[in-house]
Design a protein around this nucleic acid. Structure first.
Length: 105
DNA sequence: AACCTGACTTCGG
DNA sequence: TCCGAAGCCAGGT
């Protein structure tokens, strides 16, 4: 697998998300240098999460929701996040204002 | 090299 | 606030 500088940076960013926080595909893409490549982040996630021991479950979409389908990993991801203290509201959404991780100054 | 695809995002109705 | 359509990009085929 070839890893572009972008991909390598995406991996680094994902690894930097601390427990108890989440980030979005778009945010990671932006931090990796390409705000438009959110979809690539998803690709990196499902292809390198195991190999690079990435905390894949800390990545959700811009709407504060888990992007995996019910029965297709959704429950697992939600459980992992709740285990770290992330709170889901009645519509299974996460309060990004409160849990989204942002690079420290 | 061209075409297809997706764990996304954004905008308009 | 919710739904659909269009845009965007790197990788895989």
């Amino acid at each position: 697998m070839e890893r572009t500088q972008f991909t390598a940076e995406v991996i680094r960013q994902i690894k930097s998300i601390p427990a108890g926080y989440v980030s979005t595909y778009g945010m990671i893409a932006a931090m990796a240098g390409n705000p438009r490549a959110a979809r690539q982040v998803a690709r990196v996630l499902h292809s390198c999460s195991a190999r690079d021991a990435l905390p894949w479950y800390r990545v959700i979409n811009a709407g504060g929701n888990i992007s995996l389908p019910r029965g297709g990993g959704y429950e697992r991801q939600k459980a992992l996040l709740q285990r770290e203290g992330i709170v889901f509201d009645e519509t299974d959404r996460v309060d990004l204002q409160r849990f989204m991780w942002t690079m420290p100054a």
